[in-house]
Each structure stands twice: as C-alpha cells, then as structure tokens.
Design a protein around this nucleic acid. Structure first.
Lengths: 230, 230
DNA sequence: TATTGTGCCAATACAGTGTATTGCAACAGT
DNA sequence: ACTGTTGCAATACACTGTATTGGCACAATA
C-alpha cells in the first residue's frame, strides 16, 4: 500500500466563484465563439453541475455582461496619461485589440449598457481626461461619438474578418474571383459605383483604416472641445 | 345543405416563398424581439411544417440576413437627391428610424456584411453620391466612417432604450433614484467624474444627440472630401 | 392500364439549450 | 436524538435548429 495505490482524494474542486465561472466562459468563447458558450459546457469545464452556476449568476445574459466587463481589464490596463486626444485614441485601439483577441466581444459590444466596475473605470478614465475642456453635455457627446465610431468600426472589421475566413478570400478578392453571389449582383449592372469601388479600390490594412477614421472623428471632436474659452 | 353547411375547401395555404417567410419572421421579431424568431414559430405562422422552410432558406442565419435586407427597402425608399452630405445624413437617419421601428435590427446591424440586393442598392446610392469627390480610397473611408458611427450610435441608443424599458427609468433617473447597482458603484467614489456627469448632465433628446454626433462626423468627412482640386 | 420511378412534403428523431423544480444528504441547533 | 436548514445534484420541461425517414401524389414507362 504505497501512495500510488492510494486513490487520489476526491480533489474537492476549487471553490466556485464568479471569477472562475467567467474565466471558463471566456475560454470557451475564445475557442469556439459566443455560441459555444452554454451553461452546461461552462459548468462541465469546472467539474460542476449546470445548476451550480445559478448560485453566482442568475441568467446567461448576466454571464455575458460579466465576460464583457472582464475583458475591460485588458482595456484599462497600464494607462499612460497623455492628453485627452491620446486617451481617447488608445482606448479605441485597446478596445479593438481586445476584440481581435476575443472576437466574440464584437457580438456584444454596444449590445447592452456596460455598467460593470471595469467598464465604469474605463469610462471614468476618459471622462476625467476630458473634464473641463467644455461643458458637460459637449464632453458627453464627444465621448459618445467616439464610442459609437469605434464600436461600429470594430463590429464591421470582425464581421468582414469572419466572412473572409468563411470563404477563404477577402470580399474584394472573392468578387474578383467571381464569387458566386456578389459577382452576379454586381454583374447585373444595377450597382455600377459599388462595382467600380470593389474593382479599383486598393485593399487597405484594417488597422490603418480604423486609425484613419478614428483620427477624422477625433479631429471633429477637437473642433468642439478646444474651442477657446472666448 | 346550403353553402354554410358545406365545409370550407381546405384553403390551400398561399404558396410559400422567401418573401412570405421573411415577412412572417419580421412580424415575429417586431412583436417579440429577435429571440422570438424560431423556425418553428415562423413556420406555424404560415401554417406549414418547420422543415418546409428549408426549401427556401438553408439556415437560420440566412433568414436573419434576409430580414436585414428586407428592412433596407425602408431605407432606400423615396431617395431625394441632394448633395453628398445630405445623402449620407438621411441614410443615417433612415437607418435609425428603421431600427426604432424594428428594434431587432440593432442586434444585427454590423454583425455581418450586408450583401443583399437592397443593402447593395443603398450602398450604391451613397457611393454614387460621393463618387468623384476624392480618390476611391478616401471615398470608401468616408462612407465607412459614417457607417461605423451610425451603426454604433444606433446600437447604443437601442441598448439604452431597452434598459430604460426594463427598469422603467432612464439610466440617469435610475441612478438619481438610488438604483441599487449603479448608485452603489458611484457611491464608492471610484468614479467621481462619471458620477458628476450623471448628476449634472442634462438628459438630451436621443435624436438630437444622434444628429449632433453625425454632423460632427460629417464635418470631419467634409474636410477630407471637399479638399479643393489643388 | 398497370407499374415503376421521382420529387415533394410531413412527420419523426436527435442532440442540444436555458432554467424550474424536486430530492437528498450533511450539518446546526435544540 | 431529533429536527430544521442549507447547499448541492439530479431530474424534468419546454423549446431550439436541423438531419433523416417515410409516405404519397404525380410522371413516365411498359
């Protein structure tokens, strides 16, 4: 009767808590997308019955909210000061990076108000950076405009990325290679300008395009914020 | 034995086609949100077995794509010419209106590339309006930037609207009324600027806020497009 | 006309889903 | 020693998207 014969003690699974649950859910989502996240699979990953989870979350949507907030830790990490413009800029880029690391984030972005502690911390950081540059309402609108831009831009980028992955080609390549549907559409001649753009446009780097649009929006914001105190 | 006794002939259900299927799905989604759309319910609404649908669509996602494209008819309707800026502006506003009529649109907006005929027609209209104002890549970036803005803005607006409906109060009212979660968060003092904004900010009309942000973005775009031919 | 093929459609089947309800077993307090 | 109580596991339910099967009406053939 050596140690090796002795059966492992039942290894009480590490005590459950939200953190572990959220981590498991994120892992699943990273691997197989949001649709791969089921309460049963999350529970299984933690060696626990599905209903255990309901002691910590009360609905699947709530789990999603927690996942989103958790990812915000990657966004608020290592904040370097810089002026307001830089703050907005890096926030947008960090969010984009987070979405590239966790593509499912794109499905959730903007889907519900983000009121978790980390999301609030992120919001606090940018609001603090803009505070005082203009009246409150203008500042709010500035932040919301930039947010709207990068939310939309990220979603589109991920959507295209997935489409490319599904067909093996970018939309442009795909249509050039006579991709069945789009080509047929463009061939109808009903969309001449679209056809031209697809045909003649250069394939721009996604990050650069994101950055450019962002800079435009930031310029617009700057025009309203930096207005001299009169 | 009068007509009244005679049983109705089995009233062959109107022949099925994509249009009818999509219409039924949209009706369901309008009533109960996207999650109320199940192939079974769509089929039931058409007095048809669920599997019949697979003769016309090959997956539920495809049905969603068709729904989105169908709504685009409301967006391209009655296009008045106007200059490029007006075209972009009304497109954004029409999309917003469509999303207010069909809230589920917000869940789908930007989620996948919109390649249906109506979406392409919408794209054609705006590209045609911008064609020639700058080099192709700049034009593309302009359109995409505006798209990103209004996609994000619409999503956020609908998200807030739902949250308000769920709690009965706007986020601001809610927190002022000591809404449990957010208030506790703000009371921690960790988010002073957010707290200030929530407390002192005025509640702005959603449409106005949308329009304002949009105008900013359009200004930014204008600065790159209207660049004199040098 | 009888028979065979064929294409369409309904029904059934399967493997999952989120979550409510029930049952049980270990511990706390009397 | 008995009785709550509390925390967890198992079961149960209603539903999902979709693959597979089975039958039935019509077309083509003999």
């Amino acid at each position: 009767m050596t140690v090796w014969d002795r059966p492992e003690p039942p290894t009480r699974p590490a005590p459950l808590d939200r953190e572990r649950i959220v981590a498991a859910a994120i892992a699943l989502a990273d691997e197989g997308g949001l649709e791969a996240v089921s309460l049963r699979k999350v529970a299984a990953r933690l060696d626990v019955g599905p209903m255990r989870l309901y002691g910590y979350i009360s609905t699947k949507e709530e789990l999603f909210d927690l996942m989103v907030d958790e990812v915000h830790t990657e966004i608020i990490a290592e904040e370097q000061p810089g002026d307001w413009r830089e703050v907005l800029r890096v926030r947008a880029h960090r969010t984009r990076r987070a979405a590239l690391r966790h593509e499912w984030l794109a499905d959730l972005l903007g889907g519900r108000p983000a009121l978790g502690p980390n999301a609030l911390a992120a919001g606090e950081a940018v609001l603090a950076a803009l505070d005082g540059l203009a009246d409150i309402d203008t500042v709010m609108r500035a932040v919301e405009t930039v947010n709207a831009y990068f939310t939309g831009a990220i979603r589109r980028e991920i959507a295209n990325l997935r489409a490319e992955r599904a067909t093996g080609l970018s939309v442009r390549e795909w249509q050039r290679a006579s991709g069945p549907h789009l080509s047929r559409m463009l061939a109808t001649g009903r969309f001449p300008t679209v056809a031209k753009m697809v045909h003649d446009g250069t394939e721009v780097d996604a990050e650069e395009s994101f950055a450019t649009g962002l800079d435009w929006v930031l310029d617009a914001v700057a025009a309203r914020l930096a207005r001299p105190p009169a």
